[in-house]
Amino acid sequence: MTEGAGNGAAAIRVEEVSHQYLPARGRPVLALDRVSLEVREREFLALLGPSGCGKSTLLYLIGGFLPIGAGRIEVGGRAVTEPGPDRGIVFQHFALFPWKTVRENVMYGLAKQGLAKDEQARRAQEFIDLVKLTGFEDSYPAQLSGGMKQRAALARTLAIDPQILLMDEPFGALDAQTRILMQEELLSIWQRRRKTVVFVTHDVQEAVYLAERVAVMSARPGRIKEIVDCRFSLSGPALFKSPEFVERVDHVWNLVRGEAIAAQGGSA
């Protein structure tokens, strides 16, 4: 395994995990085939791979949303059996509760922690401010743009202060400009709050830019093909033009391209 990122200790350990979907009609789908992966504490790790390679499946298994059929997943040394507030999740399509306002959405998890009402409201406001949604506390999700919905979802997840942040293509549904803004905000939040982040994406540049390590997955059935170190001496916009960044993007691109072609052929 590559050395470097994080502080060394494993926050998440995935050992020989396979997952098969059994659709009501049609043949079983082997989505993951004996995947092993270690995510270190406070590390920002990206899971990168062509569409359909099992990125979401792996993330959902870590989240405890899907039953683990074969293999073992440990979080903080304990086997994962069900979802829990130690692993916050952000979905591509936000999954906000549409019948709750932004404030009520953010307060949902705080109420589950047993905080007093005024403490819930205070903390909710703190995180609504953090994601720059001040003024939209009483809006319903249907009244918000895509970027604002994703901010609200992020606030809802961050408010319960999970050690681990699982993100499934969280910016995939956003337009390019909003996406760049959200990437910057996520990095700044991660730097300030130092959480372990597992970030699923199929965008090479996004992965190389955001993550400390990029785990490239092979086409279905998904396996970890290679883990690429993506920490750079530069940061900010200057990074995009630096030779080391361009070279790393190119390297990862070549890894992914072969798999994308395999995925196309495989699904035909």
């Binding site: 959902y60 989240g63 405890g64 949303f65 069900e82 979802p83 829990g84 507030p85 692993r87 916050g88 999740i89 979905f91 399509h93 999954a95 509760f97 949902y108 998890g109 589950k112 922690q113 809802r156 997840t157 319960i160």
Partner: peptide
């Protein structure tokens, strides 16, 4: 009902 809503609630502590 979208399963992601249920999953969100579970991971928020429901």
């Amino acid at each position: 009902v979208d399963k992601h809503l249920v999953w969100s609630a579970r991971s928020l502590g429901a």
